[in-house]
Amino acid sequence: MKRTSTDTIRREGRVVHRRTPLLTDAHMHYCPGCNHATVHRLVAEVLDEMGLQADAIGIGSVGCSVFIYNYIDIDWIQASHGRAPAVATAVKRLNPSRLVFTYQGDGDLAAIGTAETIHACNRGENIAIIYVNNSIYGMTGGQMAPTTPLGMRTSTTPQGRDARLHGYPLDICRLLRRLSGVGFMARRRVDTPRHIRTAKQAIREAFECSLAGRGTAVVEIMAECLTNKF
């Protein structure tokens, strides 16, 4: 095959991947390599590919991802800590034709917001929950979360999480999957190119599930905080 110049490739080739216009021009505040940024990008790409910009209402939460409304170009409602599923419940019921989704971390969803999460899922609200679980509180400096694995050192478990002191890690998806209202549930990672693609597919299926009215769709993304390491 004849070798082509890179300019020709840019001009004549097809675009394999381009920044979706649903991501705003704002510079994301996340640390280099943060999984949140990757998941933001995936959500924006799925919304773009599904043509949902005008139909989506996002519910932001409290944590590192609090500024998600600066990055994805759709209408946003910033919920208080843990209450995003309750906010989403009302938004969806009052706007049944819209895609309503929350974006929450594990401190938000699996600690302070456990009740709202479980009850929204139990009622089978037709919302999607994007749950990014990095097993610590990232924004406040790496404290233990209910999801922190045993033995893991955090700023509030400097000796490692001890079950006798702190109890056992909470696997919220194992609780949620028993609920009849949940229509779709997936646990994904974003650590390799292949995992990133499957995570994106799961987000797409979650959005499709909630739009089709098949119940609450939950996608847990196993993530890693690269900054708060102890």
């Binding site: 070798r3 082509t4 890179t6 020709t8 490739i9 840019r10 004549e12 080739g13 097809r14 675009v15 394999v16 991947h17 381009r18 920044r19 979706t20 991501l23 994301m28 996340y30 280099p32 390599g33 943060c34 999984n35 949140h36 940024a37 990757t38 990008r41 390799t192 190119p193 990133i196 693609r197």
Partner: peptide, 25 residues
Amino acid sequence: RPRDCIGCGTCATVCPDGCITCYRK
């Protein structure tokens, strides 16, 4: 090494901040 690029898009797939546009011929 631009001459070695195969246009697979992996770099753009893993880029958290969406900095990369990838082309293939």
